[in-house]
Simulated scan of single mutants.
Amino acid sequence: MERNVGGIDRIGRIVIGVVVAIAGIAALAGYWAVGAVIGILALVVGGILFVTGTTQKCPINEAAGIDTTED
């Protein structure tokens, strides 16, 4: 799989991924009263966004034919 995430898309995925993951951790630790299921979901979504941003590879972008890199 070639790179298909770049530029602002990449930075946004990393930043939002970290923020959402921290929110998930806060929910699981009891600092944010939204429930464990929401906390786990936020942690998973945040992790996926962070990984796709750092690796610059997104299978959904590839399936949709989207490429945000600046070749």
Results as ranks from 00 to 15, higher is better:
Met1Asn: 13
Met1Ile: 15
Val5Thr: 00
Ile11Lys: 15
Ile11Leu: 14
Ile11Met: 14
Ile11Tyr: 12
Gly12Asn: 14
Gly12Ala: 10
Gly12Val: 09
Arg13His: 10
Arg13Lys: 12
Ile14Trp: 04
Ile16Trp: 04
Gly17Lys: 06
Gly17Asp: 12
Val18Gly: 04
Ala21Ser: 06
Ala21Cys: 13
Ala21Glu: 10
Ala21Phe: 09
Ile22Gln: 01
Ile22Glu: 02
Ala23Asn: 00
Ala23Leu: 03
Ala23Gly: 00
Ala23Glu: 05
Gly24Thr: 04
Ile25Asn: 07
Ile25Pro: 14
Ala26Gly: 01
Ala27Cys: 11
Ala27Met: 14
Ala29Pro: 12
Ala29Gln: 10
Gly30Glu: 07
Gly30Thr: 03
Tyr31Gln: 14
Trp32Arg: 07
Ala33Asp: 14
Ala33Gly: 04
Ala33Cys: 05
Gly35Ser: 04
Gly35Tyr: 04
Val37Ser: 15
Ile38Phe: 06
Ile38His: 12
Gly39Lys: 12
Gly39Val: 08
Gly39Pro: 14
Gly39Ile: 13
Gly39Cys: 07
Ile40Leu: 08
Ala42Tyr: 02
Ala42Asp: 00
Leu43Arg: 03
Leu43Gly: 05
Val44Phe: 01
Gly46Val: 02
Ile48Arg: 01
Ile48Val: 02
Leu49Asp: 01
Leu49Ala: 03
Leu49Gly: 02
Gly53Pro: 09
Thr54Gly: 00
Thr54Met: 02
Thr54Pro: 00
Thr54Asp: 03
Thr54Phe: 00
Lys57Val: 11
Pro59Thr: 03
Ile60Ser: 01
Asn61Glu: 05
Glu62Ser: 07
Glu62Asp: 09
Ala63Ser: 06
Ala63Gln: 11
Gly65Cys: 12
Ile66Leu: 07
Asp67Pro: 08
Thr68Glu: 11
Thr69Met: 15
Glu70Asp: 15
Asp71Arg: 15
